[in-house]
Design a protein around this nucleic acid. Structure first.
Length: 211
DNA sequence: TGCCAGGCCCTCTTTAGGGCCTT
């Protein structure tokens, strides 16, 4: 299949399951899930388990449902991440709490001698500004709060990336409705991740005028 | 033995501290 999508209109929403919270403390990825969005539609998905080189503890087995026996037959992280590096292919990246996933992405890519040129935006930081009445800004809570599609699976990479993609599209829709954007480029969403709460509305109003 | 991350953001703030969020 020929990939005709461009950098600007394509976003990869991704999610890692890992052995813990910090690659700096030796934690590794055990699953990557991602969806490719082109013009607001899911056109492709990616999901792979990967063997992190050691057994995972019972908390992670229980939290994710990924067991040591499932990982035993999985390909090594390096093999999966090389393949995933081709999948993201310079497109815009989105994750829920992107600071977490970007750390693991960079760490795993560096282990296979690859770098990252893709830019990240964080759905959690935007949701905090946009949905201040939500009970909290965990992915599962926001899915329920916005009544987004889901199959009841949580803490698995593909399911979480699909729910994050629905959240991402919902936020774009809500921002467009509120600020009358004709289109909303990734760069604007990325900047909303970075402006502080008090200036976010002024920022969007300014961007809407420019649009 | 005991402890273990880090970026963002709010507030009882800014010469800081603590909660949230991710596995």
């Amino acid at each position: 299949m020929t990939d005709t999508s461009t950098r600007a209109d394509t976003t990869i929403v991704l999610d890692f399951e890992t052995t813990g919270l910090s690659p700096d403390q030796g934690d590794r990825a055990i699953e990557i899930g991602a969806v490719k969005l082109v013009d607001g539609k899911v056109v492709e998905t990616f999901q792979k388990l990967m063997y992190p080189g050691r057994r995972i503890d019972s908390f992670i087995e229980s939290y994710t449902g990924i067991t040591n026996s499932m990982l035993k037959s999985a390909p090594p992280c390096e093999e999966v991440m090389c393949e995933f590096s081709d999948f993201i292919n310079g497109y815009n990246l989105v994750a829920h709490n992107a600071s977490f996933d970007s750390k693991f992405l960079d760490s795993e890519l560096s282990r296979c001698n690859k770098g990252r040129r893709e830019e990240f935006a964080c759905s959690m930081l935007i949701a905090r500004r946009l949905y201040q009445d939500a009970p909290n800004h965990k992915l599962g809570t926001l899915v329920e709060y916005k009544k987004l599609p889901n199959d009841g699976t949580f803490h698995r990479a593909l399911a979480d990336s699909q729910m994050t993609a629905h959240l991402w599209l919902e936020m774009i829709s809500d921002i467009k409705a509120k600020h009358t954007f004709e289109n909303l480029p990734f760069s604007v969403m990325q900047q909303i991740s970075q402006v502080n709460k008090n200036s976010a509305s002024a920022f969007l109003t300014r961007e809407a005028r420019r649009n």
